[in-house]
C-alpha cells in the first residue's frame, strides 16, 4: 500500500523557486521552462507554487550572497518534508563569475543539502527539465 501511494504521489512534484542573489539569468530560464508551451512541465504533473509551504522540489539559483543568506535558510526551513533541492546554474556550485567576491558566502551546499546540480550559465530549459526529472527520482525514495 505504501509503495503504491509512493508511486502515485511522485507524479505531483510542485516546484518552488528561491533566488539566492542570482543575476536573474537562470530565473529567466526557469520562467521560460514554466511559461512557454514548448517546454511545458505541467505534463510531468509539476506546478510552480507561490508559497514555500506547498513546495516539494526547491530550485535555487544564485551564489548565496551575504545579504540573502539568513532569508534563504529560513525559507528553506519553512518547506515541509519530504523535499528535494535542485541547484540551478553554475553559481550555487562554485560562485561562477562572482567567485572570490567578498559579497558571497557560497557554495550553497555548505549550508543546504543539494541533491541535484544543473550546471550552466544559464542552463538550457532542457537541462533544467532533466534536473527536475532526476530530482523526482530522488524525491520518490524520500516520500
Amino acid at each position: 500500500m505504501k509503495k503504491l501511494l509512493q508511486k502515485i504521489a511522485k507524479k505531483s512534484p510542485w516546484l518552488y523557486r528561491i533566488n539566492a542573489g542570482s543575476c536573474n539569468g537562470c530565473d529567466v530560464e526557469l520562467a521560460t521552462t514554466a511559461c512557454i508551451p514548448r517546454y511545458d512541465i505541467e505534463r510531468l504533473g509539476c506546478k510552480y507554487c507561490g508559497s514555500p509551504k506547498h513546495a516539494d522540489i526547491v530550485l535555487i539559483t544564485g551564489p548565496l550572497t551575504a545579504r540573502v543568506k539568513e532569508k534563504v535558510l529560513r525559507l528553506y526551513d519553512e518547506i515541509p518534508d519530504p523535499k528535494v533541492t535542485v541547484a540551478i546554474g553554475v553559481c550555487p556550485i562554485s560562485g561562477g563569475v562572482f567567485r572570490d567576491s567578498y559579497a558571497i558566502t557560497g557554495p550553497i551546499d555548505n549550508f543546504i543539502p543539494v541533491d541535484v546540480n544543473v550546471p550552466g550559465c544559464p542552463p538550457r530549459p532542457q537541462a533544467i527539465i532533466d534536473g527536475i526529472v532526476e530530482a523526482i527520482k530522488i524525491w520518490e525514495t524520500r516520500l
Binding site: I8, K10, D40, G45, D56
Partner: peptide, 14 residues
C-alpha cells in the same frame, strides 16, 4: 500538452 486528467487525484495523495 498538459497534465493527465487524473492529476488532481495524484495531487491529493501527495
Amino acid at each position: 500538452i498538459g497534465p493527465p486528467i487524473y492529476q488532481p487525484f495524484i495531487d491529493l495523495v501527495k
